[in-house]
Design a protein around this nucleic acid. Sequence first.
DNA 1: CCGCGCTGCTAATGCGCATTATCGAGATCG
DNA 2: CGATCTCGATAATGCGCATTAGCAGCGCGG
Lengths: 341, 341
Amino acid sequence: MTGKPGKVTQREIARIAGVSQTTVSMVLNDRDGSNIRIPDATRERVRRAIEQSTYVADPAARRLAGLDNKILGVFTYESALTPESMDFYGPLLNGIERAAESLGCDLLFFTSSPVEEGRRRLFHRNTRLRLADGCVLLGQQMDGEDLERLVAESFPFVAVGRRDETDAPVPYVGIDYGSLTGRLLDRTVELGHEKVLYLHRDLTSPTARDRLSAIGRAPGALAVAPFAVGDDLSDLPQVVARSGATAVFAEDAFLIEDAALVLGGADLSLAALAEVRGHRIGGRALSGFHTPRQQVAAEALALLQQLISTPAEEHSGIEIQRLLQGEVAFGETLTVRGGAR
Amino acid sequence: MTGKPGKVTQREIARIAGVSQTTVSMVLNDRDGSNIRIPDATRERVRRAIEQSTYVADPAARRLAGLDNKILGVFTYESALTPESMDFYGPLLNGIERAAESLGCDLLFFTSSPVEEGRRRLFHRNTRLRLADGCVLLGQQMDGEDLERLVAESFPFVAVGRRDETDAPVPYVGIDYGSLTGRLLDRTVELGHEKVLYLHRDLTSPTARDRLSAIGRAPGALAVAPFAVGDDLSDLPQVVARSGATAVFAEDAFLIEDAALVLGGADLSLAALAEVRGHRIGGRALSGFHTPRQQVAAEALALLQQLISTPAEEHSGIEIQRLLQGEVAFGETLTVRGGAR
DNA sequence: CCGCGCTGCTAATGCGCATTATCGAGATCG
DNA sequence: CGATCTCGATAATGCGCATTAGCAGCGCGG
């Protein structure tokens, strides 16, 4: 409590304990070795001085001196904490918070990143990125350049969601939509369906392509026709009728909900090739997937921590691309062909 | 792209542009004055070198050199991102994110703080608190010692929610529950009620006392009897009957919901002296308050920013304790005395 | 009694940046 | 033509910490 408030340094502690700043640092970091020897008596004296004071290490100085900071960056390509985005980000953020807690890390949200062309830019003049030991990237769509640059600068990071936009291999943790899609299609065959219409909007994201390629590997008895839809779904009933499909799937729960509105009470099985928790259609639980979002987030942080604490040369020994298995949610909207609706 | 990846410093830029590190710093910070003069030609040369490279300033070094970092700390006394706590924290966090975005600040969540006695500790050996320019504190209950220490160290901070646990004046932004309570009581009188039972658990928090003192100032025609409840509400019906109350209020929406279950269909008006959004009792919208949580959060960040950017001597000119007005939500459970239920 | 190794510590250095003090080279003035 | 001033820049310093190299003192063996 001497001097100016809020500025207790190791120097000050050293002065009080009658030792050098070096010694204080050594004691604080429990250093010991052939070159550094501090008897318990001195250690104790220093410790006491620290406890008497309100000393806390300045993280900026630690960082500058080249140490880990126990700070993990969180970058979201859209606002993460709005009520609307909570549906998607909520479980992820929850998983991240819990994992960070158990790793003893703080989380730095890059909310300041300027928005350009509808999404945030990770790199800008005053990015605080480097303050973090590493960074988690969240968002439906990511910027390939950002990813490239992170790789080029060998800054530790992990993307949530499968990525293949770049040449260099990007570390990610995602969900195995291919396998899930396959399993749902198997079930669809079991239920007697032979023709399915698959509604989608975007085919550029990796997960969209995963679904599509799983559709391509559909069991022989099943024909799945992809169909790109726009904002206007009004001609969907004709398309379905003409295709002869007995089931309609969509790339996400909202799209199938919209489609269901247009298709009315037609006797069709419906499913989303995505998370369906909380979604119902006409009072029935929507068929689709249950995806382990919390685990994805936790696994992402675990991988990130691993990348941070492992010297770059040994990164080849780490599985940096991980897909977690989800569960097929059979629900109530995928029924036997021609079954009562 | 020379040297080691991910380490472009001002020194490197200086080498490329053929100037000194000092000059680079000057250009970056747009410094200019009688002592520092850099012709546009040189400025341009430096700027070009920076743009060619991937230079970004090291925030740790900036901080160490004594500058603001545009990082605001967020400390919550409980986990903030769990599905359950989203009800309370969600709007606050949303407000904070938006405010931070428009202030150009990043947010540092102190998720690493060790939990002691059920709640997190702000100060601990390796707190990264000082990395932030200032800090927002959230939580139903705060630690008086933490607050004292922040004041003592003159670290800029703002509490969300009214605080009076300490001797020193704590900067806060809260909601004026006293005024809201008064307005709800006026309405209660208008509806013909003369006796109200007020259920509460905790009376130690400042906002609890605000409600109580507003109750003390109730209009003459109204008698409000506070009643402390425990976990077991089973004797509540007798208490209500004996008191002759025609209305029952509670300190929060959950408590009045619990009470409603016990009280069954009795012909009583009900209200919570707190946020009631999303709460219904027997299909009716619960009467109570609508509190502007987003604005509270935004105002808190604005105040924090003001404290940070104002030299400490001038803090006396700032209104550091702010109460925002909410709205009375008349709802459907507060009705005329003896009115149909 | 000289050297050697061991103990217990500290001076010095650097991290990347901002800032202060200075400095050399022309231009201007008296 | 020497003194002063202005311009354009830089060397030096410090922020708080970790780390490397090294130093003084002591005991011990030869």
